[in-house]
Amino acid sequence: MSKNNTVFIGKNKSFWDRNRRSEGYLLQRRTKQICISIVRALLMFGLCFMIIQPMLIRFSTAFMEEKDLYDSTIVLVPRHLTTENFQHVFNLTGFPTSMVNTLWISLVVSVLQVISCTFVAYGFARFEFPLKKFWFACVVLLIIVPPTTIQTSLYMSFANFDIFGIFKALTGGPINLRTSMLPYALMSLTCMGLKNGLYIYMLRQYFKNVPDSLEEAARVDGCSTLRTFTQIMLPDAMPTIASCFLFSFVWQWTDLFYSRNFLSTYKLYSVELSSIVSRMSRYFSADASVAVVVPVGRQQQLISIGVLICCIPLIILYCFTQKTFVQSLAMTGSKE
């Protein structure tokens, strides 16, 4: 559409000259193009600004002192710079510990999820086995069942964990698995973690598009199935796997549902952040037994700092891996 289809009539002719020759068509076309690009630029700028603006506001308010918040002459640039707010938020969310916990749990969980999802996706993409359609329907079901539907039952079964009464016979009672990371690790290993159906779907789409001849050649040369998978399919699939890993990592980082239900013994940043308001009144009172009312503006300022701290690592990660994110997702979507 943006291609210039004008007939070449001379190098040194001026624009108006050429316009006259084309009987006004050139001018019309050029005006149209410029109009379109102005509208487009405005629209894009507006929408991009809308996405970024909350972050910018957060950033500017983060360094304000409390009195700056109520001063209506201050909109963006703080008059009294302070980093004291960050200290408060660190204390409120148990900063270094909760962040480190979030980091390693997200890492472990997403690695487990991606490994198992890759295996399953390869199985779905490359093998014919009985009930394949049924199992794939189960994957789709996994995507669309809201986790709230099963949370009660999962909660119960992990709080009183038992396999066919084995533990009851051995220790005289069911064991509570909610105090450890084991249930969630097991769930991740069996593709039941956060949005795992989606990763299986994405990876399956990728594997389906790899030409058969690659594997056939390997098989003719006497390569075993597992070796074909690990040495021929996996290296090529790395970009897609990496993007699944990133998704998994990011969503686990901010996840509240699974963290609240299964990882309640670990201090995770997302959980701490979600209950930051309720802890504020205690924190700001002089002695711990009396609760003070924290003004709304102040509350929101601290929340937004909390969100900022949560986002910054992710944004930095995103800056470096933006291409991986977008590209492999694009590849997945196109071959529906």
Binding site: F129, C138, L142
Partner: peptide, 18 residues
């Protein structure tokens, strides 16, 4: 059978946790 082995984690997970 090989294919089933590949999706076995999913089958187990689906039956137990879903």
């Amino acid at each position: 059978r090989t294919g089933t082995l590949f999706i076995l984690p999913f089958i187990i997970g689906f039956l137990v946790f879903m």
